[in-house]
């Protein structure tokens, strides 16, 4: 939708330009400042941008990790060049490189870093959020179907950056219970 709108605006501007370059009739007819500047320069972008801003705010608000029933809490700690994951429902459990979550339930990932700045990004589940030393950022993710989802670091963090990835493994109800009980999934 964003792309489509942007393409339309781009084409509109290009057509105006092309017409300006091709016109060979009497120049200097002062259609003037009102049309060009007040109409196209002010009113047009203000309208489009107001709509866009409203959309962004509403969607952004919906993505917030509000407390709710059935939210699973896990922790993710980035380091050069590895990820450690911990689980509130299974204290003491720590996995490296693979984050286990239940499918179909909202999961809050508490993200932090042990050394430099990293970023936690699972493109198919949510946007990215940075892992910053000393800070804990909470990202809400939810996987609808069980399976493996690829995740990567997405803030440059040194020579090992390219291969600094991880997997999010979403389990069905039974497998999740098994995992929490400490059996190898």
């Amino acid at each position: 939708m964003l792309l489509g709108g942007a393409t339309l605006i781009f084409l509109f501007v290009m057509v105006l330009l092309a017409l300006a370059m091709r016109r060979r009739d009497a120049p200097g007819q002062a259609s003037g400042e009102r049309v060009w500047i007040v109409g196209l320069g002010l009113a047009f972008p203000l309208t489009v941008l107001a709509a866009l801003l409203a959309y962004g705010l509403v969607v952004g608000e919906r993505l917030l990790p509000r407390p709710g029933p059935g939210v699973v809490d896990v922790g993710a700690e980035g380091r050069q060049w590895d990820w450690h994951f911990t689980y509130a429902d299974a204290p003491g459990r720590m996995t490296e490189g693979v984050l286990h979550i239940p499918a179909g339930r909202p999961v809050d990932v508490a993200i932090t870093s042990a050394d430099v700045i990293h970023s936690f990004w699972v493109p198919r589940l949510a946007g990215k959020l940075d892992a910053i030393p000393g800070h804990v950022n909470v990202l809400r993710i939810e996987a609808w179907v069980p399976g493996d989802y690829a995740g990567v670091s997405s803030e440059y963090n040194g020579p090992g950056y390219t291969g600094h990835d991880f997997t999010v493994r979403a389990h069905d109800e039974a497998a999740w219970a098994d995992f929490l009980a400490g059996e190898a999934p």
Binding site: L53, G60, E61, L64, P65, R66
Partner: peptide, 10 residues
């Protein structure tokens, strides 16, 4: 505008 429309600390 956000003062009136968005949640403050989430």
């Amino acid at each position: 505008i956000p003062v009136a429309t968005t949640s403050a600390c989430l």
